[in-house]
Amino acid sequence: MKVIFLKDVKGKGKKGEIKNVPDGYARNFLFKKGLAIEATPANLKELE
């Protein structure tokens, strides 16, 4: 799953980066803790 990092996550990504991460990791950790959001076309446009 492609995500946009909202905060730095040690060993995974830095704020503003767009990366592919495992689906479970994104849903169960990154999204729940507010560390990242899904890289949807709308979210990507908002980032620019």
Results as ranks from 00 to 15, higher is better:
Val3His: 00
Ile18Arg: 03
Gly16Met: 04
Gly24Trp: 15
Thr40Asp: 06
Lys7Asn: 07
Arg27Lys: 13
Asp23Thr: 15
Lys19His: 12
Asn43Glu: 06
Phe31Trp: 02
Ala42Ser: 11
Lys15Asn: 04
Gly11Tyr: 09
Val9Glu: 01
Ile4Leu: 11
Lys45Ser: 10
Gly24Lys: 12
Arg27His: 11
Asn20Gly: 07
Lys12Asn: 08
Val9Ala: 03
Lys12Tyr: 15
Pro22Gly: 08
Gly34Thr: 04
Glu38His: 07
Asn28Arg: 11
Lys32Ile: 12
Lys12Gln: 15
Gly24Phe: 14
Pro22Asn: 11
Val3Pro: 00
Lys14Arg: 13
Ile18Lys: 03
Gly13Ile: 08
Met1Val: 08
Lys32Pro: 15
Lys7Ala: 12
Phe29Thr: 08
Ile18Asn: 02
Gly34Glu: 06
Lys33Ala: 13
Leu35Ala: 04
Ala39Leu: 08
Pro22Gln: 10
Tyr25Arg: 05
Asn28Lys: 10
Lys14Ala: 09
Glu46Val: 11
Val21Tyr: 06
Gly34Met: 09
Ala39Gln: 01
Ala42Pro: 08
Asn28Ile: 06
Leu44Gly: 05
Glu46His: 11
Gly16Phe: 09
Lys14Glu: 06
Lys15Asp: 03
Gly11Asn: 09
Val3Phe: 00
Asn20Tyr: 15
Tyr25Gln: 05
Pro41Asn: 09
Gly13Phe: 14
Ala26Met: 07
Leu44Met: 11
Lys12Ala: 14
Phe5Ala: 00
Lys19Thr: 07
Arg27Met: 11
Lys14Val: 11
Lys32Arg: 12
Lys32Thr: 09
Lys7Leu: 10
Leu30Asp: 00
Lys10Met: 11
Leu47Glu: 07
Leu6Ile: 11
Ile4Gln: 04
Phe29Tyr: 15
Phe29Ala: 04
Lys10Asn: 10
Ile4Ala: 03
Ala26Glu: 07
Thr40Pro: 05
Ile37Val: 13
Met1Pro: 03
Gly34Tyr: 07
Asp23Ser: 15
Lys33Asp: 05
Val21Arg: 01
Gly34Arg: 09
Lys32Glu: 10
Lys15Tyr: 05
Asn43Val: 12
Gly11Glu: 04
Asp23Gln: 14
Glu46Gly: 13
Asn43Phe: 10
Ile4Asp: 01
Glu46Phe: 13
Glu17Leu: 02
Asn28Val: 06
Lys10Gly: 08
Leu6Gly: 00
Asp8Lys: 06
Ala26Lys: 02
